[in-house]
Amino acid sequence: MSYKVIVKDKYDITPLIETISMRDSLDQIACQASIRVAVPSGSGLPSLAPGMDIRISGIPFGDKSFHPLLHPGVIWEIESTNSGTKRLNMTVYDRMIYLEKSEDEYLLPKDQTASQRIRKYAKDWNITLGTIPETKSKLGKAVYRAQTIFSMIFADLKETAKSDGPMFHPRMTSRGLELFELGSNSNVIQLDRLIDMTQMRTLEGAVTKIRVLAASESSDGKEVPSKALAVEEKGTKELGTLQKLMTDDQIKTADAAKKYAKNYLTGIQQTFTVTAPDINTIRAGDAVMVSGMKLIVMTASHDLGNPGTMTLELATADYVRRRYYLE
Rank of each mutant, 00 (worst) to 15 (best):
K262L: 11
K258G: 03
A261C: 04
I268Q: 11
Y260M: 06
I268M: 10
A257F: 03
T253F: 07
A257G: 02
K258R: 13
I282C: 05
K262M: 05
I268Y: 04
G285V: 13
D255S: 13
D278Y: 02
A256W: 00
F272Y: 15
M289N: 14
M289G: 03
V288T: 08
I268K: 03
K262C: 00
A276N: 04
M289W: 10
Q269W: 02
L265M: 07
T266M: 09
D248A: 09
K259E: 08
D248T: 04
K259Y: 01
T275H: 01
V288C: 11
I279L: 11
L265A: 02
T281P: 06
G285I: 09
P277N: 06
D248E: 15
D278L: 15
I279R: 13
I251N: 04
T273N: 09
D255R: 06
G285Q: 11
A254D: 14
D249Y: 13
K262T: 08
T271R: 04
I251F: 04
T266S: 14
K259F: 04
N280Q: 12
D255T: 12
I282W: 07
A276D: 08
T266I: 09
A254Q: 15
M289V: 14
Q250A: 15
V288H: 10
I279W: 05
K259R: 15
Y264A: 10
R283D: 15
T281R: 10
L265N: 01
D286Y: 15
Y264C: 02
R283A: 14
T253D: 06
I282M: 04
A257K: 00
I251H: 04
A257Q: 01
K252C: 05
D286H: 15
Y260T: 01
R283C: 15
A261V: 00
K262Y: 04
K259L: 10
Q270I: 11
T281K: 07
I282Q: 09
F272Q: 01
A261S: 03
Q269R: 11
I282D: 10
A257N: 03
T253H: 08
D278Q: 12
Q270L: 07
T253C: 10
N280I: 14
I268E: 13
T273F: 03
